[in-house]
Nucleic acid binder design. Structure first.
Length: 322
DNA sequence: AAGACGTGCAACCGCCGTCTG
DNA sequence: GCAGACGGCGGTTGCACGTCT
């Protein structure tokens, strides 16, 4: 006999999640943490299968997620990592704190692919498209010349991938990403990939990550304000800065202080949490839970922001808050 | 103004390796 | 050891929204 089925799949709801369902899922995980997705729907009062709950949580509700379009820096990383790893989106995502594999996959398919094709680069092989090769065969003299002078599109591609080192250093200072050194569990193939990055400027960058581990995010990262999205979708392009100001939300410092004191007061917990997900440190504190309860409050007399504003608006700032 | 078309993204589907009873 | 569920992953779909005609 194997395990019990995760759900009977009868009468389960599908399709987009409602704010109500989100609240239930958030409340449940805040209270119980994430341990057994099979049990989550029943215990949380959701007519969803555990898989759907897990997906919703990891791709959308997780507090350490960044929202909005990928930055130029992140996009460069995605392109380079894709050149090395292929469509292994989860691996790629593990190098980009706060980004999900789904998000990166979507961004690749909708933005980067087109960008590369426009530049004459095959998004699969990361090499010039066959047309360019054909031209080389037709004009061998040009080929010789191109050995010394890469074609324009390739130069553009290199420029696209050329991460400004100063920017990178500043960015890393800003993020202060905790890096776990590779423990040798990686496959040799992947070690080779990481050890010999395609682009020199990515070399140090790649060595700072363990490919299989999601980089531990400094709590301060989670607090970074969401950059106003330039997405075409109206829902995600709301001006979060203005909204934050309008809301007069409490200073984010309380959360930094909370994390700092929490971690310094309990080293053992810190270690345990690090092995899991730094964001999960949130769930253990009653005070924090009460704050979240306030955020998602349904009380008519004292509505939390999540109930006061439309979902699209809250999306843009709650994650910044976290 | 309205229908057609294009775009972006959340969510689903199905496969696979791992784990459990 | 085995059957079957779990969790993770990548591919795909469907819908909402924006733009074009």
């Amino acid at each position: 006999m194997g395990r019990q089925p995760c759900c009977d799949k009868v009468g389960l709801k599908k399709g987009p999640w409602t704010a109500e369902e989100d609240k239930k899922l958030i409340s449940f995980i805040l209270t119980n943490g994430q341990y057994c997705w099979r049990a989550v729907p029943k215990l949380a009062g959701l007519l969803r299968c555990g898989k759907s709950c897990r997906l919703r949580w990891t791709n959308y509700l997780r507090p350490d997620l960044k929202r909005g379009l990928l930055s130029e820096y992140e996009e460069k990383m995605v392109i380079d990592l894709h050149a090395q790893l292929g469509n292994r989106w989860s691996k790629i995502a593990s190098h980009l704190p706060g980004r999900t594999d789904n998000e990166i996959k979507n961004h690749w398919n909708t933005h980067i692919k087109k960008k590369l094709k426009k530049m004459g680069i095959d998004p699969i092989t990361h090499k010039p498209l066959p047309n360019a090769n054909q031209q080389i065969q037709d004009h061998p003299q040009q080929e010789q010349q191109q050995l010394h002078q890469p074609p324009e599109e390739e130069q553009n591609y290199q420029q696209l991938l050329q991460v400004d080192f100063d920017t990178k250093v500043d960015r890393n200072k800003e993020l202060e990403i905790s890096v776990e050194s590779s423990n040798g569990s990686e496959s040799k193939e992947e070690e080779q990939i990481i050890a010999t990055p395609q682009f020199e400027t990515m070399d140090q960058l790649m060595n700072e990550f363990c490919t299989d581990e999601v980089p531990i995010i400094d709590p301060n990262d989670i607090l970074m304000p969401c950059a106003p999205s330039s997405s075409a979708t109206s829902t995600s392009s709301s001006n979060s800065t203005t909204i934050l100001e309008d809301l007069q939300l409490p200073d984010f410092e309380w959360f930094c202080d909370y994390i700092d004191s929490s971690l310094s007061n309990n080293n053992n917990n810190h270690e345990d949490k690090n092995t899991n997900n730094s964001s999960l440190t949130l769930w253990d504190d009653d005070d924090f839970t009460s704050k979240i309860n306030w955020l998602i409050s349904e009380d008519d007399d004292c509505d939390g922001p999540l109930t006061q504003f439309s979902r699209t608006v809250t999306d843009s700032w709650t994650f910044g808050l976290f």
